[in-house]
Design a protein around this nucleic acid. Structure first.
Length: 280
DNA sequence: AATGATGTTAGAGA
DNA sequence: CTCTCTAACATCAT
């Protein structure tokens, strides 16, 4: 079973796993095999990264923030299929390795991305919050930062449907196609419900479920092993914990009605036509 | 063989 | 500003 990568829980898992492998490692060389992965001037990127040391890794939404020595930060987004791995420098490169960071100890941090959608750029630490991509992010989905009253107010203002709204990262950061479907199923809300039609009570339940589900996923991934080769899912990983995503035609775990798949905002959307009805 | 779908988001246009 | 649609790309299923 191949591991699906990049919603908040997966990015968080990569952050934790990678931290243990590269913290305090100095970069001796940077190789750009497919330079379009880099945003901004590529030569500047190589020049600035080379000779720096990886410090802690932070995360904001689905963005990884690699802190480096001398007040620099590499901002990295995995998009659809980006993956990091740490391997010995004599191991042959994968077909889809696009960026290689040689480390002092003969290891390499490698960035793989079949679809080449992922992006990375270097900025001065602290200025990353000014990037348009990070600036527009809503709160992190934690009880301290994601506040129910704000959430409800935001929903009241929006004219689009809830599935699309949750995906756009501005109301709350970190949800992707899988967990949005899961959260809406948990909350018994139809994905095409207009945001302004959602009641305070529903918003409250959805808010709690968002925090719950993402934490549950992070915890489940905690049993995942981050090896030198990348993230290895343990047998029976989170795939088994999903209730609706990728389960078209299977019985709803709550009411046994066959699950359906529709398109909402150009994204495949899984839901239970019985549990999640459109109020009209 | 051709078409459509795949975890995301920036950017264009309405 | 808000919202919708498309492009970026490779692979796999139909």
């Amino acid at each position: 079973m191949e591991e699906k990568m990049p919603e908040l829980p997966e990015v968080e898992t990569v952050r934790r796993g990678l931290s243990a492998l590269i913290t305090d490692k100095k970069i001796t060389k940077v190789t750009l095999i497919y330079p379009k992965i880099i945003q901004g001037d590529t030569q500047t990127f190589v020049k600035e990264m080379t000779g720096r040391t990886f410090k802690e890794i932070d995360r904001r939404g689905k963005y990884l923030l690699f802190r480096l020595s001398d007040g620099l930060t590499m901002v990295s987004h995995l998009r659809m299929e980006g993956k990091y791995s740490v391997k010995e420098n004599n191991e042959p490169l994968d077909k889809h390795t696009h960026v290689v960071f040689d480390l002092v100890d003969g290891m390499q941090l490698r960035y793989n991305d079949v679809r080449k959608f992922g992006r990375m750029q270097i900025v001065k630490t602290g200025t990353e919050v000014q990037l348009s991509s990070l600036q527009k992010l809503g709160p992190e989905p934690t009880p301290e930062t994601f506040l129910i009253d704000d959430f409800y107010q935001e929903l009241q203002k929006k004219k689009k449907v809830i599935k699309t709204a949750l995906l756009d990262q501005t109301i709350v950061a970190g949800l992707g196609n899988i967990y949005v479907d899961e959260v809406l199923w948990m909350t018994k809300i139809h994905p095409e419900t207009k945001c302004f039609d959602i009641t305070y009570q529903q918003a409250k339940e959805m808010h709690d479920n968002i925090i719950l589900e993402l934490n549950r996923a992070i915890k489940a991934h905690g049993t995942t092993i981050f090896t030198f080769s990348g993230v290895n899912a343990q047998i029976g990983s989170f795939q088994n914990e999903l209730n609706v995503y990728g389960k078209k035609g299977e019985p709803c775990p709550r009411c046994q009605t066959p699950l359906e798949k529709i398109v909402v905002g150009q994204r495949g959307t899984h839901f239970c036509p019985n549990c999640q009805q459109l109020a009209k």
